[in-house]
Amino acid sequence: MTCLKEDLIRELKKEILEGDAEKARGIANKLLKRDFDPLEAINRAVTPAAKEVGEKFGKGEIFLTDLMFSAEAMQAANQVFLEKLSEQKRETKKIGKVVLATVAGDIHDIGKNIVKLLLDVNGFEVIDLGADVPSSAIIDRALESNADVIALSALMTTTRPSQKEVIDILREMNVRDKFIVMVGGGSVNEEWAEEIGADGWAETAEEAVKLAFKLIREKRGE
């Protein structure tokens, strides 16, 4: 029996890596039928698979579409495990809540979508507001949801001033310290992040995830 469970854990990882949501959901159900602990399944199959997918994307070994299929497979398996945990009245703790958007005037969302996927699979709760989002809408949502992080993407040099606008308004409203503000996107560099007073800048989606972990830990004094 143990051997079968171990096989299922391996299979679940494989299906997540291959991005097959239906198979991943099926294996997750099989594991629960065999009384496998849902939290252990998340820790031993879903989380390591997520890490591997993120690393492969970072190295250019897989592409955005692979990442999206893998994320769907992870979500399918996670949904099964989370429902069980909820039945058992056990809580799972998210690492932090991130309000994510491509800023006003910018319609490009591929980079932002990659960040969303990688944050999702790494255990963050992500509120994705989409592209071309007005600064006030981003701030309202961050306040309403009591977010830990506001993450702002801008592809174009002509739209990145909207990142600055969000930070300026936060200051004006005296709520700047409530949030960690991260910036990124094709046009964004370290100089710009410093100039506008962001808490951090990441060049790639994988670095954005690492940065979010680091900044949240620092803020919580961990």
Partner: peptide, 14 residues
């Protein structure tokens, strides 16, 4: 090249 400012004011889309 692209302007980010005009007469010292930030240019923002729209």
């Amino acid at each position: 090249p692209i302007l980010e400012e005009i007469e010292g004011r930030d240019i923002k889309v729209s």
